[in-house]
């Protein structure tokens, strides 16, 4: 396992998670969630789990993000506070 790449990926994970929590615009948060899942997929391939990387890339970055976007589109986009 590449130690430097691991450190960079972990930093990005925490950064994207923090941005997702702090963003008031839910659509932007959904897009950041997609980025979070993609970084998690790279993390899985670093941890020698190719099956998980495939599933996470398809499910996390694909299906779940689309579900979030559909829900935001049919409800409200902004978080009040």
């Amino acid at each position: 396992m590449n130690w430097t790449l691991n450190l960079v990926l972990l930093t990005f994970l925490v950064g994207t998670a923090f941005a997702m929590i702090m963003l008031k615009d839910l659509l932007a948060a959904a897009v950041v969630f997609s980025a979070y899942s993609l970084i998690m997929a790279i993390m899985w391939s670093q941890l020698r789990a190719p099956d998980l990387a495939l599933t996470e890339a398809a499910v996390g970055a694909g299906v779940t993000t689309v579900l979030f976007v559909i829900t935001i589109f049919r409800t409200v986009r902004k978080e009040n506070r």
């Binding site: 929590i21 948060a29 979070y36 941890l47 979030f68």
Partner: peptide
């Protein structure tokens, strides 16, 4: 967070963190 969609996003972060922990143990 009071917003329900934000809560679900938090639930997803929580789940992936547990996944990362368990797979890291098997490394």
């Amino acid at each position: 967070k009071p917003n329900l969609i934000k809560k679900i996003m938090g639930l997803n972060i929580l789940e992936t963190s547990v996944f990362l922990f368990i797979v890291s143990i098997g490394m």
